[in-house]
Design a protein around this nucleic acid. Sequence first.
DNA 1: GCTTGCCCTGACGTGCGCGTGAACCTCTAG
DNA 2: CTAGAGGTTCACGCGCACGTCAGGGCAAGC
Lengths: 140, 140
Amino acid sequence: MRIGELARLAGTSTRALRHYEERGLLAARRLANGYRDYSAADLRAVEEIRARVADGFALAETRPFVECLRAGEGTSDACVDSIEGYRRRIAQVDAEIARLLHSRERLAAQLDTACRGARGQGDVPPALPGCVLFPAAPGT
Amino acid sequence: MRIGELARLAGTSTRALRHYEERGLLAARRLANGYRDYSAADLRAVEEIRARVADGFALAETRPFVECLRAGEGTSDACVDSIEGYRRRIAQVDAEIARLLHSRERLAAQLDTACRGARGQGDVPPALPGCVLFPAAPGT
DNA sequence: GCTTGCCCTGACGTGCGCGTGAACCTCTAG
DNA sequence: CTAGAGGTTCACGCGCACGTCAGGGCAAGC
């Protein structure tokens, strides 16, 4: 198939596919007229890339998964490198979540004190806008 | 005080302070020789900016807080705009946390199936590296 | 006069995943 | 024959918070 069809099937853009090629993640055969020619395996590769990127992997970090695909024929995360990749990414995600939870606590505290001490610019209504009971962070 | 001292006191760089000025967040008097001259109020303003940025506010979004400082003399979040800012940011943080939690679930599932089905490149030891019991996400 | 340390104003570099033309070629249908 | 849809490479733009030169001036000690 050609680049437009692959882009549609993978739910992305032709520009992205060319970008993957520039980064060495995707190699296309060429037709006689110079057009890129992709196979079903390439579609799998692109889906793999998109899936990893959607979970926060950088493009370069998707390389082991793609190479594993090429080697393993069909399944993606059958390689040892993939396991390391998953673990590292999970650790990053956990760190980020922890950071955001702390940040949320600080923000909620600030909102609280702001609501108590707010004088406003001018008249402040008895019920301050946005100072209602506030739900907790997701996952807590 | 001059820019170097302010940067040290606020724990940031002179470049950052000039950047804040470019963005209209910080206005400095000038000495006869053209050097920037800052006051204690400016230090408070910079601390406010840094605190907001540390909690994920964009530079432009710190403006209401800084203006509130200038108006309110001393306290930061006494203005109505601040409350709106806190609420919006908390909503963003919650959305981001939710996104990361979903991502983490997918990653953990992937890691699990990878650990079960891993063939590896070559010999795979009985205990796969990185396939130990894995802790849950923070805050769950 | 020389060094040293601080300050000044531009203005480009960084990281990253593409978006968005420009200018051109290729195939197909009417 | 011609339009139109799709392909090609090249290369700049973007967002954002600064880092990092480059090329100067100012003040103080020796």
